[in-house]
């Protein structure tokens, strides 16, 4: 698996040959720097670690500054490890979009979903609500209803879906087609939407 770290820029629409508008997401993918190479002999598995996004030295910790110094680069905002990278790279090499991705390929995009706060069961789990507004129903249209039986089992089973904090979790969207690659600005345009807000970090896997 190879990939890059990127940043979500925003959404727009492009047109295909049939004249249909396609919703697409603009991602700034790379340039990423190889900050560590993990090998079978030393670490027990093969992987490379990539760094993305500039970070001020005064905002970085001494251990991280030392880590980046080994790769001969400046401190990075985001560091991600990719297992079994298809092509072997040396420490300190810079990877751009065109090194990894091509137009027409399919990629998976991982990001952190927007936080929704405390949400009820209708939004969080897709419950249908009570349904009617008549027959005496007056104040529980979006309630979950019963959460279990009565004197047996005398408790609520674990894992019953209820209201609570929603969003802000890791989400992977699979099989997004790459519509366009602009090498100068390291721009990747994929069809469809990706998780997270604008300027949030994304992992693009191939």
């Amino acid at each position: 698996m190879s990939g890059l770290i990127g940043k979500k820029i925003g959404m727009t629409s492009l047109y295909n040959a049939d004249g249909q508008a396609l919703a697409c997401t603009v991602i700034q993918a790379g340039p990423c720097v190889v900050t560590q190479v993990r090998s079978e002999e030393k670490d027990g598995y093969k992987a490379i670690q990539l760094g993305f996004g500039e970070k001020k030295e005064k905002n970085s910790t001494q251990p991280m500054i030392g880590h980046f110094k080994k790769a001969n680069t400046t401190p990075k905002q985001k560091v991600v490890e990719f297992k079994e990278f298809e092509v072997e790279h040396e420490l300190g090499t810079s990877l751009s979009v065109t090194d990894i991705f091509e137009e027409g390929e399919f990629v998976d995009v991982v990001g952190s979903a927007k936080g929704r706060g405390f949400q009820g069961v209708v939004k969080r789990h897709g419950f249908a609500g009570v349904g009617g507004q008549t027959h005496g129903q007056h104040n529980r249209a979006r309630h979950p209803g019963s959460i279990g039986a009565c004197s047996f089992p005398s408790r609520v089973f674990k894992g019953i879906r209820m209201g609570g904090r929603m969003g802000n979790n890791r989400v992977k969207i699979q099989n997004l087609r790459i519509l366009k690659v602009i090498p100068e600005q390291n721009i990747l345009v994929v069809s469809g939407s990706v998780p997270g807000s604008k300027n949030s970090f994304l992992i693009i896997e191939k």
Partner: peptide
């Protein structure tokens, strides 16, 4: 709107 998005939209004929 982001300059990078404008750049992508500029590729539409």
């Amino acid at each position: 709107m982001s300059e990078l998005i404008k750049l992508v939209e500029a590729t539409i004929e």
